[in-house]
Amino acid sequence: MREITFAEALGEAISEEMEKDPTIFTYGEDIAKQGGIFGAYKSLLGKFPERIFDTPISEEVIYGSALGAALVGMRPIVEFHFADFLFTGIQSITLQIEKIRYMTGGQGKLHLLLRGPDGISNSAAAQHSESIETIFMHTPGIKVIIPSTPYDIKGLIKTALKGDDPVICFEHKMLYKIKGLVPEEEYTIPLGVADIKKEGNDVTIVTMSHMVHESLKAAEELEKEDICAEVIDLRTLVPWDKNKVIESVKKTNHLVVAHETWKRAGWGAEITSVVQEEALDYLDAPIIRVGAKNVPMPFAPQLQDFVTPNYKDIIDAVKKVLR
C-alpha cells in the first residue's frame, strides 16, 4: 500500500467520484487557482476546469446555492474556507439545508457536501481557529464527518458523495500534510462506524480529528506507566457509534472524552451523558472531559498553548479517572 497525505487522499476521493459522476462539481473561495488555503485541493489543480471554480465571499449564498443545486439533481461540494465563517452564512445550513427535506414531508434528496478546514493552528486567533461541529450535532438535519487520517477521509468522503443526504466534513488544518497508508483499490467507510485506533483494557479515550493523534501520543506515554488506553476515533459525529463506545466502556470501566472544541457544552458532554444514561453500572469513576478552555482563542503563542488541549491534558485526565 502506498503512503499519501490527507489532502491527497481527499483530492483522490473527489477526483475519482467526479470522473464517475458528471453531476458532481465543487466551488468555494480560493480553491480553483490556489488549491485551497491549506492545500486541500492542490492535487485537483488543473483538473475539471468547468466543474471546480472560485466564488465571491458570499457565504450565505454559497451554502444556500448548494441546496438549490442539489434540488435540481446536481451533487455540489462546497468548500467553506474556514469553519469559523460558517457562522456568517449559517441560516442557509441550519434553517434551510437541515430542514427542507423534513418540513416538506420527505421531498427531494439533498445530496450535497460542505467541507473545509477547522481547528487550532499557528496563532490564527479567535476568528480562524474554531471547531464548531457540536452545533451540527445539536441541530438535526445534517450528517457530520470528521476524519483524522488519509485512509479515513478518502473512505468517508466517498460515502458522502455516493449517499443522498447532506454531509458536512471538518478537516483539521494540522492534518492536511500528514501521511498515511491508503489502498489504491476502491473502498468506502460507512458513516456511524467508529475506528479503534489503539486497543486497550484500562481506560477508553473517545476522540476525533487532530485530538486522535494527541490521544495516541498520550496512550504511548501512558504505556510507560503500564496504563493501557483504548483510543476510539468516532470518525463521524452524526451519526456516532454509541455501541462501540459502550462496548469499550464495559471492558475498561473508565472513560475520557477528548476534543479540541470548548469543553463547555462540547460534544463530549453529549457522549458523557449518553454513556452515564446507558452504562452507569459499568463505570468505576466519573467520566472526564478534555476540551479547550472556555474563551475565544488568543493570539500570543503562549496563550494559545495554554487554552488548547493537548496530550498532556489527556494523560492528566486518564490518571485522574483511574485514581
Binding site: T23, F25, R51, E60, V61, Y63, G64, S65, A66, L67, G68, A69, A70, L71, V72, G73, M74, P76, Q91, S92, L95, Q96
Partner: peptide, 16 residues
C-alpha cells in the same frame, strides 16, 4: 431564505 436556493437551482441548471 429562498433567494440563495433559487440561485443554486440556477447554478445547477447552468451546470446541466
Amino acid at each position: 431564505g429562498g433567494l440563495p436556493i433559487a440561485v443554486g437551482a440556477g447554478l445547477g441548471i447552468k451546470m446541466k
